[in-house]
Structures are given as structure tokens and as C-alpha cells.
Amino acid sequence: MPSPRLEEITPDNVLAACAIAVRPDQEGLVAPVARSLAEAYAQPAVAWPRLIVDGDRPVGFLMGFLDIKWGQDPADVRSGLWRLNIAADQQGRGYGRFAVAALADELRRRGADRMFVTWAPGPHGPERFYGRLGFRLTGERSGDQVVGELAL
């Protein structure tokens, strides 16, 4: 039985990545994959975009951020989860959990000891999901989003 894996975004899979669509009630909470890829193209030094694939089927998209300066303190450099889009018909099957764990492994490999994520609070938001994975609120905000942190 195939297991999920992350694949680099290539000319062969970019359209499949762009076709990933979340549930309608989540559309205002996470940017479409095409926008994420445009941001990754504009910021290649910090963006780490990946397609989540199970067997030969794309099931989601993940984009990490690497070593960005955070806030006013130049010594505060962070890495973490920038975007997570799991296809509407694939949610609840463990792909999000897999993707976050795979990004955590990548960040550990790069020497990070913490992983950050931001999200818009609200009834359809991912706060419970991130909480179940061990993220804790930092008390900070990034624009209108709250900041969560996971010890690696």
C-alpha cells in the first residue's frame, strides 16, 4: 500500500498542485496553491513548496518558510509552516498530520529546534488541528493571525 510523500514542485506536477482545492468554508482561511507558488517564486530563498502525494494521486500542498527575520529583533529568525492545503475530499485521512511531521523533520535536519505556524482564528480555522499536533499559542500575532510554536 502506498504511503504519502512530499515531492518538489516541477513542470510535470505544477498543474496538479494548482488544482488542489480546500473545502468552501476554508477558502478564506488559506491562499490558493497558485498564489503560494507565486510567492515561492518571488521568495525562493525562504519558500519550501511541496506537493503531498499518495501513490500517484496529489492530495495536498505544503509550503514551509525557512529562516525568516521575525519582528523587530534581527536575531529572531524563524522557520515553519507557511501554507497547508489538503484537498477537500482528502481531509481527515492523516495527510495534514503527515505533512506537518515531514516539514518538522526537514527543519530538524536543517538545525531548527522550533517550528512556527500562523492561522486566522475562527470556527472553521485549524486551531484544534494544530493543537492536537502539539503547537502552543505564543501570545503573538502576525497581522490578523495568531502564532503557534512547536518544540522540535
Results as ranks from 00 to 15, higher is better:
18 C>N: 15
18 C>V: 10
20 I>F: 05
20 I>E: 02
22 V>S: 13
23 R>I: 02
25 D>F: 08
25 D>H: 14
26 Q>F: 06
27 E>D: 04
27 E>A: 12
27 E>W: 01
28 G>C: 08
28 G>I: 10
29 L>E: 08
30 V>M: 05
31 A>D: 14
31 A>H: 11
33 V>D: 09
34 A>V: 13
34 A>W: 05
36 S>L: 06
36 S>P: 00
37 L>Q: 08
37 L>D: 08
39 E>Q: 13
41 Y>R: 14
43 Q>F: 10
43 Q>Y: 11
43 Q>G: 07
43 Q>A: 14
45 A>Q: 13
45 A>G: 02
46 V>Q: 12
46 V>A: 11
47 A>Y: 04
48 W>R: 13
50 R>G: 02
50 R>Q: 10
52 I>L: 03
54 D>K: 09
54 D>E: 15
55 G>D: 14
55 G>P: 09
56 D>I: 11
56 D>A: 15
56 D>R: 14
58 P>G: 01
59 V>I: 06
59 V>T: 11
60 G>P: 13
60 G>T: 12
62 L>E: 01
62 L>H: 04
63 M>K: 15
63 M>T: 03
63 M>S: 12
64 G>L: 00
65 F>D: 08
68 I>H: 01
69 K>D: 09
69 K>E: 12
71 G>P: 09
72 Q>N: 11
74 P>N: 07
74 P>A: 10
75 A>Y: 11
75 A>V: 11
75 A>R: 14
75 A>L: 14
76 D>P: 04
78 R>G: 02
78 R>I: 04
79 S>G: 08
80 G>V: 02
80 G>Q: 02
83 R>L: 14
86 I>N: 03
87 A>I: 04
89 D>Y: 03
91 Q>K: 02
91 Q>V: 08
91 Q>T: 10
92 G>T: 06
93 R>A: 11
95 Y>Q: 00
95 Y>M: 01
99 A>I: 05
99 A>E: 06
100 V>D: 01
101 A>F: 06
101 A>Q: 15
102 A>K: 10
103 L>Y: 05
107 L>Y: 00
108 R>H: 02
110 R>M: 07
110 R>I: 00
111 G>W: 04
111 G>V: 06
112 A>L: 01
113 D>R: 15
113 D>K: 11
113 D>I: 07
113 D>C: 08
113 D>F: 04
114 R>Q: 10
115 M>T: 06
115 M>N: 07
115 M>I: 06
116 F>W: 12
116 F>E: 02
117 V>G: 00
118 T>S: 12
119 W>I: 04
120 A>C: 06
121 P>I: 07
121 P>N: 10
122 G>W: 00
124 H>R: 11
124 H>E: 15
124 H>M: 09
125 G>W: 01
126 P>A: 15
127 E>H: 10
128 R>M: 07
128 R>T: 13
131 G>I: 01
131 G>H: 08
131 G>L: 05
132 R>K: 15
133 L>N: 02
133 L>V: 03
134 G>M: 01
134 G>F: 00
135 F>C: 05
136 R>H: 12
137 L>P: 09
137 L>T: 09
139 G>R: 02
139 G>I: 04
140 E>S: 08
141 R>L: 05
145 Q>T: 13
145 Q>A: 14
145 Q>H: 10
147 V>W: 01
147 V>C: 05
